[in-house]
Design a protein around this nucleic acid. Structure first.
Length: 274
DNA sequence: CCGACAACCTGTGAGC
DNA sequence: TGCTCACAGGTTGTCG
């Protein structure tokens, strides 16, 4: 589910109600996520949240003494709920906020597939083993045509899997990789190194535009994606190629193709993308 | 360095 | 209706 835009929408949704507040308790109903939720996570009561950041698809909740690192995996979502709201089968963890005797003082993690993660680190998050090797943020100043051109140099692999490689560029998942390549008019199978300077510039621009548009739209809403307040994203209704195999290209009418690259489905228009 | 593949899980939709 | 199968937004780790 969540790629960079969904994580960013979630971050913006939860930050205002989390920053400056104190954690009353962490309730773990199911510790078996991607990695077992540690004892440290359960004992954060009393800490005050200073900020909620993001690195790639990781949410970073700054608690002063350390950071909670949250990853939503394939099917995770965070939502504010009432203290008395009954947890469902896949509601694995609650962050209970102090002083909120009123409504919506529980930040609840739901993750049916349990590919997500909740970790605690006392050190700088950037030095954590999961974040240490992450590549450039596509919405940062650094990421432009020149940077991307340097990244693809001498790379024989296809451009789509390269775009999805978090060691090079973070946050671009399966949906937005296909969407960005469509917007840039580039075939997903193109060997990365064969892209000209001009085309990498177009692609960098397309990635930024695609991610920004998705954030503006409130994130994607395949299946049950919800933002921090339970609102549904609406990017799905606007995909150009993703999950549209056999349907006509919205620009030229050609039949959208589905291929498989690195075990992931890729969609593209055979006429608009060369 | 690369790609291929399995693994970690549950839910959904298609087809019979 | 009910069964089986393929597939799903992510990431790690192993192997050739």
């Amino acid at each position: 589910m969540p790629e960079l835009p969904e994580v960013e929408v979630t971050r913006r949704g939860i930050a205002p109600h989390l920053v400056g507040r104190t954690i009353a308790a962490v309730t773990v109903r199911e510790p078996r996520l991607r990695w077992r939720v540690s004892r440290a996570v359960r004992s954060l009561a009393g800490l005050t949240v200073r900020a909620v950041g993001r690195r790639g698809k990781y949410l970073l909740i700054d608690c002063g003494a350390g950071h909670l690192i949250v990853h939503l995996g394939m099917s995770g979502s965070l939502q504010w709920v009432d203290a008395q709201a009954q947890p469902g089968r896949h509601d694995h963890l609650d962050l209970v906020i102090a002083g909120g005797a009123g409504n919506r003082c529980v930040l609840r993690l739901r993750d049916p597939r349990r590919f997500g993660a909740v970790l605690w680190t006392a050190a700088a998050p950037s030095s954590h083993r999961l974040l240490r090797h992450l590549g450039v943020e596509p919405l940062s100043q650094r990421f432009d045509g020149a940077y991307l051109h340097a990244l693809v140099r001498e790379q024989r692999m296809a451009i789509k899997p390269l775009l999805m490689d978090a060691r090079r560029v973070v946050g671009v998942g399966n949906i937005y990789a296909s969407e960005s390549l469509y917007l840039a008019g580039i075939r997903p199978q193109t060997p990365a190194a064969k892209l000209s300077r001009a085309r990498t510039a177009r692609l960098a621009d397309a990635v930024r535009k695609t991610l920004r548009a998705a954030i503006r739209a409130g994130g994607s809403s395949l299946r049950d994606y919800v933002d921090g307040h339970g609102g549904l994203g609406c990017f799905q209704t606007r995909t150009r190629v993703y999950d549209r195999a056999g349907e006509p290209c919205r620009r030229c009418g050609a039949s959208i193709r589905r291929i498989v690259q690195n075990q992931r489905a890729t969609y593209y228009c055979p006429r608009c993308q060369r």
